[in-house]
Computed example of a mutant assay.
Amino acid sequence: MVDVAKVAGVSKSTVSLVLRGSDGVKAETVTKVNQAIEQLGYVYNRDAASLRNRESNLIAIVANDLANPYLAQVIMALEAELERRGFMPVVVNINESVARQTTMIASLREHNVAGYFMTPAPETEAAWLKGLATQEHPVICLMRDVAGSDVPYVMPDNVKGVYLATQYLISLGHKRIAFVGGVETISDYRERKQGFIQAMEEAQLSVRAGDIVPSSTKREGGKVALHRVLDSDNSITAVMCFTDVVAYGVYSALMERGLTPGKEIAVVGFDDLEDSRLMSPALTTVRVNAEDIGRVACERLQQWRENNSVPESALVGVELVVRSSCCSVGERAG
């Protein structure tokens, strides 16, 4: 099989996929592998291959937090795409813990997984991640980037998404806007914060120290962050939230203070979870298609395995979905 891979100019794992009849390999690659097989007179022994590589079709999905509803949507999309391509997905939860991430990866390596999709835990070291990724066991990061690791990522265009949402709030006349939620050590927080600041600076609107409040990405984090913002400055008229889940917590905090979301204070989320359109009022948010994340991530993994080279990272498009949670300044209830 090694000789076939060399002649075809692909990886050994790609040859294995072709021999197993996976439909996730490009037609031109299948042709090259079959030509190499014919040229070399190679005969595929399925029984021996099964004994040697019994688990070589396993792909690990290392989830940072399975309680995150948007990540659950991405994982479902990944599972469907991987199965279509002839792989068996295995999902593990690291619960945002670097220590658990290290332990889980060590166990997965013992099972000869063919590759990894990871949403790296906060504080993941670039050198560790770089050492994990190889041609035979490629790694694609989901939703987050670890700077300096040279490991490709697939994630939403976070900067653009929050930039568009903040621009929309500004167009409604809001000048005092807060950005709440998210953990400072993860890349998606920094990127979404960048989009917020960029839109505010372009509109020549000030961003005070207390206008940006990081917090847990749970609902409770949004609730705590909103209280902190309004306790320090009640001139805030709009809130840009790190995620929809954070926005749900902001709704709760506003109601605790006797304020109505979408009337006294405008609220925008990020992700467009299924429940967001059912909120009262329906949440304006940035939509990211989970199926697109899953499809593009699988394409990148396959490219690495087939082409013997690290693929480029990818940003998936975003869309602002306007619903009922954003009043204009003139419409605010008195």
Rank of each mutant, 00 (worst) to 15 (best):
M1G: 07
D3H: 03
V4G: 10
S13T: 11
S16T: 12
L17F: 10
K26I: 05
K26T: 08
A36V: 00
E38M: 08
Y42L: 04
V43L: 08
V43F: 12
A49E: 09
N57Q: 15
I61M: 14
V62W: 09
N64Q: 15
P69Q: 02
Q73S: 15
R85M: 14
P89Q: 11
V91G: 05
V92D: 06
I94Q: 05
S97D: 03
N112S: 07
V113K: 08
Y116W: 02
M118I: 15
P120E: 04
A121N: 12
W128D: 06
Q135G: 09
E136L: 02
E136T: 04
P138R: 08
P152N: 02
Y153C: 06
G161M: 03
L164A: 02
Q167C: 05
L172Y: 04
H174S: 03
V180A: 01
D188V: 01
Q198T: 13
A199Q: 00
S206Q: 09
V207K: 01
V207S: 01
I212Q: 01
V213I: 02
V213G: 02
S216N: 13
T217I: 08
G221S: 06
R228E: 14
T237S: 12
V239A: 04
D244Q: 05
V245C: 01
A247T: 00
G249C: 12
S252G: 10
G258L: 11
F270P: 00
F270C: 06
D271R: 05
D271H: 12
D272T: 09
L273E: 03
P281Y: 07
A282L: 09
T284K: 06
T284H: 09
T284Y: 10
T285A: 12
T285F: 15
D292H: 12
G294W: 08
A297I: 07
E299T: 10
Q302R: 03
R305P: 00
S309Y: 07
P311S: 07
S313E: 00
A314W: 02
V316K: 05
V316G: 11
V316I: 12
E319K: 15
S325P: 03
V329R: 08
A333M: 14
A333K: 11
